[in-house]
């Protein structure tokens, strides 16, 4: 066991002109860097949101961690080893939920059991599938997107992974199924201490379920850390524009409306009371960083190598 579920050091991935990205349309620039200079450490047992706009490099990051892509530079370790060696202990659900269309639901689960003989929890798989009222005899190709997501999550969870990598897991689901499956994921985390990493471009969807954040934008990590710590490190302020001196603080975003100056910043020292500092919401924080690509990133700059 290791207390680090996932760590990246100067990780980068560049796609050649001939090769598409794991998701078509992401970072449409041929031959560019999909991810660059990505350094972070995710402690075990966390539920981590990978957030960023379309084309930010979220899918690339997850595919690198799953070992489906090889890094162009730097390295990524999962569960204390390289992605290929950790594969038996990692569950990965790609965004397009790849399944065999000609198999039935029941056959798909049998394949899952067959491929993971040491770890398979058939009861868990059955429970997730039956909660969705799926006919076991239905062929995968006849299922809706949301039903396919359910089967894919059943496969990933029944494997009882130590690390679960989910690329946009909730995108196809109706609100009811979303809530139920998120509850199932959280229950997995509570019971087994499973580390869960899930990507989304909808921050609000993840706010209550995640305790760790990785904000990716323009192929780089903009924010990384515990959500509570990140929120506590920032303040929203509102002050008289002529009187306010933002200089010592790290300004993420600021705006002047009439005489009023509003800003989101990382305070360096105590803020004046009359600036009325308040704690931003996660969504405010994420949007402020995404609107301002030049804002200095906040990631723990500790040596990741020593931790693994």
């Amino acid at each position: 066991m290791t207390d680090t579920a996932m760590a990246a050091t100067a990780l980068g991935k560049r796609f050649g002109r001939r090769w598409g990205l794991p998701r078509s349309g992401e970072a449409g620039t041929g031959g560019g860097w999909a991810l660059r200079d990505c350094t972070f450490r995710l402690p075990a047992g966390r539920v981590c949101a990978v957030v960023g706009p379309n084309g930010a490099g979220k899918s690339t990051l997850l595919a690198l961690a799953a070992g489906l892509l090889a890094p162009s530079e730097g390295r990524v370790t999962v569960l204390g080893t390289d992605p290929a060696s950790a594969r038996a202990r990692v569950g990965y659900v790609a965004q397009d939920k790849p399944l065999y269309p000609q198999l039935t639901v029941a056959e798909t689960l049998l394949v899952g059991a067959d491929l993971n003989p040491a770890r398979w929890n058939a009861e868990a798989a059955e429970r997730i599938v039956s909660a969705g009222d799926l006919n076991p005899k239905a062929r995968i190709r006849t299922l809706s997107g949301g039903q396919r997501t359910r089967v894919a999550l059943a496969l990933a969870l029944a494997k009882q992974p130590e690390l679960l990598l989910l690329d946009e897991p909730m995108a196809d689901l109706d609100p009811l199924a979303r809530h139920e499956l998120m509850g199932t994921l959280m229950s997995q985390a509570a019971q087994h201490g499973t580390t869960i990493v899930m990507s989304s471009h909808v921050v609000a969807e993840l706010e209550d379920s995640c305790d760790h954040l990785l904000l990716v934008g323009g192929g780089r990590v903009r924010l990384a850390g515990e959500i509570d710590d990140l929120l506590a490190a920032h303040a929203r302020v509102s002050a008289l524009s002529e009187a306010a001196d933002l200089e010592p603080h790290t300004v993420v975003e600021s705006r002047v409306t009439g005489r009023q100056l509003t800003a989101l910043l990382r305070p360096a020292g105590r803020l004046p009371d009359d600036w009325r500092p308040t704690r931003p919401s996660l969504e405010e924080l994420v949007l402020a960083y995404l609107r301002n690509p030049q804002a200095a990133p906040l990631t723990p700059a500790t040596s990741e190598e020593s931790a693994v």
């Binding site: 539920v47 959280m186 229950s187 509570a190 019971q191």
Partner: peptide, 17 residues
């Protein structure tokens, strides 16, 4: 209720509970 029971019903993070 156990943390597991709460998160299963509410879909919030176990550490919050």
């Amino acid at each position: 209720p156990t943390a597991r029971e709460v998160v299963e019903a509410t879909a919030i993070n176990p550490n919050t509970v």
